[in-house]
Nucleic acid binder design. Structure first.
Lengths: 349, 349
DNA sequence: ATTATTTACGCAAACGATGTCGGGAATTAT
DNA sequence: ATAATTCCCGACATCGTTTGCGTAAATAAT
């Protein structure tokens, strides 16, 4: 099947004009007589003419589109961020091409290369949890492709970045558990490579040390696939639960890890918070409806997307190379609910 | 900022060849000598040359990309469907451009028009709940743009369609409530215009009539925004709860309606299922973790996306106009959990 | 030695739109 | 009446790639 849209050439032919004249008439150039303009505009409207964006892109060397590369769109944080990105993009006349890495390094590279080959004017990137080799993105960036990192940033490239204060968020979340009387707090994090993992784990450690809590390196666990796979969470949880130093609370550092821990506790009949308290990073909008209602660290995903898109478009439209870069750090929100509430068996510290 | 990728012209210049020769060498044409081929291929590899897809699109009049238009990607059903779509697209060498209507007719029209202007080779469409005027999509389709509808279909266009057996799903869900002893069952549906709404409401009605249950037209309610806005669900629920014929169970016909009813019941302290049983259409993957665990009708979203994408790509690649169309009807899954369980106060019917 | 064929490459057109340039006709100035 | 100036519009090149056609040189056939 083929879809043949009307072109400027078709209009020129039927109206007995040249393509240049039609083009100028449509762009309301002063060198076209009012009568000709009217004829052209009327006919174009009638035939529902739209300029071919592909031809424009080729000519202008820009596509008026931005690429977004995230690990998964079926993830509340990212879909909310994309909403923020779209709101800005639409307003500024860009459209958004979304690609998923699924936390897979090879998919990330091929997605980047597709986006790169001039089909987008810039890229918003949140790297996959597998990625430790940044040569593809570095290569693109050094050749002049505007890139803004959000959430999971690439330290090695010097550009705008939009993140949450992960350190403080984890610090506060851990503190909240400590205040509620929990003593043996474990931390289950995303892949160790990720910036967000490091920052969150650091926040957790600092809180534990500041409050002089017993702290054991074994109580920090990593899920290389970010909890996407239930079994990796199961394994980590089994280890924690069966260890002689069984934790009484846990902080989960990603959306999927959070929900998979809840699933685990339900399956294994580990009552929350009585037997294990928990708080997790999550952007799901129904954590209040879970059983028990879930204490969460919520990231301002929509705002992050918005800000990242604004920075990217500024970069794209800047005439001269951008030299000083911003790292926007937004605060996360701590929402206290039943899953981390004080339990009677725990004496206040 | 500008990103200048290497072109065939650059290669030609440095190697002292013509663009045609380079092009042919890269496509392994027989009329290029092995030595020249080797030179060109080696240099292209070295410089990481990629053909400009925009130039290709212009020349070939195809973009090797398909457009997906859904109401919202931050919706489990659609994000799962998109995953299915992407899996097929990637395998067949297409990339996916995603657009959201946010249930807004104007956004839908402008998204369609963007996709239309030759930037995609075909469109996968699930219409917005506001749409009653299908002239844009009809116009595109009649001009030869391949379109496949999924989930929310447009009856007036004759093309491939991929849906769930909504009638049967709602029939079974209603029956399930009846079997568990509920008598006054209300149905809260998405916008009345949508195909899925009509089919689901019909299934509900049929079950009520078959089982000789008291049936009142007032027990069918509609949310024009598909439950996206909490307040519209609140209003409907207030009416139902306060009516003299207060229902003892409810069937919710969309994801957002389902979760917003739960939110309502939690806020208003309406115990589920004791005071109001419920079952809802939902593709969330943590409905088991809700309080109470939620009975759901689950759609095979991933498979629907896959099938729809396959049909679309077949249409796109078909040499002659496709004339006989398929309507693929997949079964939904009924998952019984606590929210619709029998309660002691209800005698078995 | 002359002609025919093959080999290996370049030229130019095309896709749709825009912008630069140039020029014919009509109007105004001299 | 002639020169100068507007006013409108068309021809052409361009973006990157592919492809049909032409062709010089090399080889093969006569």
């Amino acid at each position: 099947m083929k879809f043949e849209a009307i072109t400027i050439k078709d209009i020129a032919k039927t109206l007995g004009l040249s393509t240049s004249t039609v083009s100028r008439a449509l762009r309301d150039s002063y060198e076209i007589s009012p009568e000709t303009k009217a004829r052209v505009i009327e006919y174009a409207r009638e035939m529902n003419y739209r300029p071919n964006p592909i031809a424009l892109s080729l000519k202008e060397k820009r596509s008026s589109s931005i690429g977004v590369l995230v690990s998964e769109i079926a993830n509340s944080f990212f879909s909310q961020a994309i909403n923020g990105i779209e709101s800005v993009a639409q307003q500024k006349g860009y459209n958004v091409v979304i690609a998923q890495s699924k936390e897979d390094f090879n998919r990330e590279v091929s997605a980047l290369q597709y986006l790169a080959s001039r089909s987008v004017d810039g890229i918003l990137l949140s790297v996959s949890s597998e990625t430790s080799d940044f040569s593809t993105i570095n290569g693109l960036y050094s050749k002049g492709m505007p890139v803004v990192c959000f959430d999971r940033v690439v330290e090695s490239i010097d550009t705008h970045k939009v993140i949450v204060d992960n350190f403080l968020a984890a610090y506060n979340a851990t503190n909240h558990l400590i205040k509620n009387g929990y003593k043996k707090i474990a931390c289950i994090s995303n892949a160790a490579l990720l910036s967000i993992s490091r920052e969150r784990v650091e926040g957790y450690k600092k809180a534990m040390i500041d409050k002089k809590m017993p702290f054991d390196e074994k109580s920090v666990c990593y899920c290389p696939h970010g909890g996407l796979i239930y079994e990796e969470v199961e394994e980590v949880m089994n280890q924690l639960i069966k260890s002689k130093n069984r934790p009484d609370a846990v902080i989960a550092c990603s959306d999927k890890i959070t929900t998979n821990i809840m699933r685990y506790c339900k399956l294994k009949k580990v009552p929350i918070p009585e037997s294990l308290a928990m708080i997790g990073f999550s952007n799901l909008d129904l954590t209040e409806l879970l059983s028990p209602s879930l204490s969460v660290v919520r990231q301002p995903a929509y705002e992050m997307g918005k800000k990242a898109a604004e920075l990217l478009i500024t970069m794209i439209e800047s005439k001269r190379p951008v030299l000083d870069f911003e790292t926007v750090i937004l605060p996360a929100e701590l929402i206290q609910r039943a899953s981390s509430a004080k339990t009677k068996t725990v004496k206040k510290a």
